[in-house]
Design a protein around this nucleic acid. Sequence first.
RNA 1: GCCCGGGUGGUGUAGCCCGGCCCAACAUGUGGGCCUGUCGAGCCCACGCCCCGGGUUCAAAUCCCGGCCCGGGCGCCA
Length: 423
Amino acid sequence: MRSAEISPEMDGKKVTVFGWVHEVRDLGGLVFIVLRDREGFIQVTLPKKIIDPETFKKAKKISRESVLRVEGTVKKEEKAPNGFEIIPEVIDVLNESQAPLPLEVTEKVPADLDTRLENRFMDLRRPKIFAIFKIKSEITKSIRDFLNREGFIEVQTPKIVSTATEGGTELFPVSYFEREAFLNQSPQLYKQILMSAGFEKVFEIGPIFRAEEHNTTRHLNEATSVDIEVSFADHEDVMKILERLIAKVYCDVLENCEKQLEILDVKLEVPEIPFERITYDEALEMLGDQIPWGEDLDLQALKTIGSKIESHYFITNWPIKIKPFYVMALDEKLSKSFDLMHGYIELASGAQREHRYEKLVENIKSKGLHPESFEFYLKAFRYGMPPHSGWGLGLERLVMSMLNLNNIREAMLFPRDRTRLVP
RNA sequence: GCCCGGGUGGUGUAGCCCGGCCCAACAUGUGGGCCUGUCGAGCCCACGCCCCGGGUUCAAAUCCCGGCCCGGGCGCCA
């Protein structure tokens, strides 16, 4: 049984529990073993008088973090945590842990993030850390539920590709038999091709790879992207989907992860929709003369704006020249694009796409890219491509901003960064 | 990639500025002992550490140079 399934009302019942030895408190004639599983803790109590001498002796020697199977009787007990304890008949050491431990699961002594990531299997045993990933799981479940209900089709696109998606970002080269290939930085081109295929509404939750040598608290070289693409929709339409999705995710986490939020000491509020929308031009105004027109907003700028706007907001109508070639123009200078922000963290980025073949080819050229290398993509635009829009949402960024984590690595089980390839 | 800060028992810190009093301190841990209501258990004893290489000096954890590694900020990136 799991720790959460046992209650004081089960007094007298025989149970079998499994778990890790969180702590052993040996008081001489009375030994407490605190057993931990993913749901919580169970106190196993061994009073010398009533426990078989062999079992009692063995219990005193059990090392922390060993894995146990305990058969025993539930005893209602005021003095025990959660109001009950287990008086064991059989203690079976399924696997003994070595000592000393690479870090303290009990959190008596903190460990550096680096040490924690080096020993992630043990770091993840900490209820606080586990809670992050329980919530991340709830978030992905919530996203899937929402998008499925909205009539989206979940798809999987290639992660090994022949060409860059957008120019700009650096790609990881991989050896593909006799050719060179790359790890995909985004499913962008493929989800657009599916619009031509008539899928109308698609989404994908999958890994993306960026070979940038950044070393910050909000960048990873391997991350998870939630991507959607919708036919016959403009950027306003997909912004509405995005804000409703975010609100729904917050709602579901609030409802289904109460315990985890409490462990993490996070007070969540479902953001109100519609989210505030400011244009790029308005953003620049808020900043005074900090950023010249046409430049991207740097962290400093985003922090300034983020401090002025509570909760989530969109920055819309970005200069076309700093957007990728597939983004549709609004006029000479601006584009039908948006970023979803939470504080200074950019959560998502989207736009209406350029679906007109001639314009698209023009855009590719104007970015200094070669239309020939995008032929597999461009072909889909010559035989009936509907107007369409979409966005990509960084899952780890969402987790980070929701839970107030101060490093995005905390939101990844085994993060890949500039120097970390193992574990 | 650049700038700044750092690397001391398994883990987290102090000591470094101003070299000697440091065969390095504290907490946690580990091993042993005492203890029948712990829940950060308590008490006693023991164990375990100066990133690597070079230099300065009578003397280096401490100062200098190089390397490797880590953190923060920036840039790049969405």
